[in-house]
Amino acid sequence: MSTATRVQAHHLATAITRTKPHISKDDTLDVLNGIHFETNGNYLYTIATDRYTFAINRTDVVNGQPWTAHLREDDIPIVLAWLDRHDEDAYIEINTEAVGSRTDLVLSSLIGTLRSSDPTVNRRHFPDWRTMVRKILATDQAVNPLTAFNSRYLARFKVIGSVLHSWQAGPRKPLVLTDNRDFIGLVMPAPDEKVTRDGLVDNWAWHLKRTEANVLGASFDLTVEYRDRHGDPWRYSGKDGQYGEPLMELVGIDDDPWPLLKVIDTYGPLSKDEPIAA
């Protein structure tokens, strides 16, 4: 049975470009080695995933009956080059044709016809993307202490070319990315169980400390320790008080830090000592 769906050339090119970075390179998962095309007669959905990321693009179409097809990764450069020969507002007619046990994707326009024949059969087992995304979106957003993501996977979304909105349902849950128009994507968390938020904060805390403070008209170098009049060492704790005053701690004593002005008033004068070790 032949079907027909009409879509503008630049919209189809955009849909393919947005989803192709997410195609799987695993040749044992042939169902993921390309872009899944699906239409309900009103929208054309292009979907690709390698299980680490998921990309779904939605495009308005004209007419057509519901159908599904598969565009092989090897054919994508040819299809994009063919689409680039069209004016932006030119319409492409998409047909699917049953050829034996496979379904071919046929693109037609005023300048010619292009066919993508996929020798792999049984595309019925492409992941149930609607159910998966629906469940993720239905989950209430939770506080997320820490989740790791692979930067290479995040880079796949740069082709969207717009601001992306994001959220997670909870720690170590997929990151949802959407442009609030026609694209939604998922990024799966990267395994990194040994890293903690406190550890990441500590890794930068020393480098982000204040280095100087002005108290009573005098400048204090906060990268060194100070000796009070009794010879006891004080150093900047890395924390500031409610009004931004540096809080000092007595070295070797586990106690609440004191504002620098209070240390000066109580135990001053203070004299410079050794630099604080990193």
Rank of each mutant, 00 (worst) to 15 (best):
Lys25Phe: 08
Ser116Phe: 08
Pro191Phe: 06
Ser24Lys: 12
Pro127Ala: 08
Leu114Asn: 09
Leu32Met: 07
Ala55Met: 06
Ile111Ala: 12
Pro233Ala: 12
Asn214Glu: 12
Val133Trp: 05
Leu29Trp: 09
Lys194Arg: 13
Trp204Cys: 09
Phe37Tyr: 06
Met1Tyr: 10
Leu222Asp: 01
Ser24Val: 06
Thr46Ala: 04
Ser2Thr: 15
Leu110Glu: 15
Asn122Lys: 15
Gly185Ile: 08
Thr59Met: 07
Lys135Tyr: 11
Lys262Arg: 15
Ile111Tyr: 11
Asn150Glu: 08
Trp82Val: 01
Tyr153Val: 03
Pro66Gly: 03
Gly241His: 00
Met248Gln: 02
Ala213Met: 00
Val195His: 02
Ile47Asn: 04
Glu225Gln: 10
Leu260Thr: 03
Asp254Trp: 07
Asn203Met: 13
Asp128Tyr: 15
Lys194Thr: 14
His86Asp: 01
Asn33Leu: 07
Tyr91Ala: 08
Pro171Glu: 05
Glu38Cys: 13
Tyr267Arg: 14
Pro269Arg: 04
Asp140His: 09
Arg229Tyr: 05
Asp228Arg: 09
Trp167Lys: 06
Asp84Ile: 00
Arg130Ala: 11
Arg123Leu: 14
Trp258Glu: 14
Asp104Gln: 09
Thr3Ala: 06
Ala55Gly: 03
Val106Lys: 09
Gly268Glu: 02
Thr103Asn: 13
Glu93Phe: 02
Glu88Met: 09
Asp30Met: 15
Val263Phe: 02
Trp206Met: 08
Arg152Lys: 12
Val143Thr: 11
Ala90Thr: 03
Thr39Cys: 07
Pro246Met: 00
Ser2Arg: 14
Asp75Tyr: 08
Lys20Thr: 14
Gly34Ala: 04
Leu137Val: 04
Ile136Glu: 12
His230Trp: 10
His36Lys: 10
Thr19Pro: 14
Ile35Tyr: 04
Val201Ile: 13
Pro257Ala: 07
Tyr236Asp: 01
Leu44Ser: 04
His207Ser: 14
Asn180Cys: 09
Tyr243Asn: 13
Thr5Ile: 13
Trp204Tyr: 09
Tyr45Val: 05
Asp74Cys: 05
Ser162Trp: 02
Glu93Met: 09
Asn122Phe: 10
Leu250Gly: 06
Asp240Arg: 08
Leu137Lys: 12
Ile56Asn: 11
Tyr43Pro: 02
Glu73Lys: 15
Lys20Ser: 13
Thr147Lys: 01
Leu200Val: 02
Ala148Phe: 04
Asp118Ser: 10
Phe54Val: 08
Ile264Ala: 02
Arg123His: 15
Pro269Ile: 01
Val251Arg: 04
Asp254Ser: 09
Asn144Tyr: 00
Met248Gly: 03
Ile16Phe: 03
Leu260Trp: 00
Gly268Thr: 00
Ile160Gly: 03
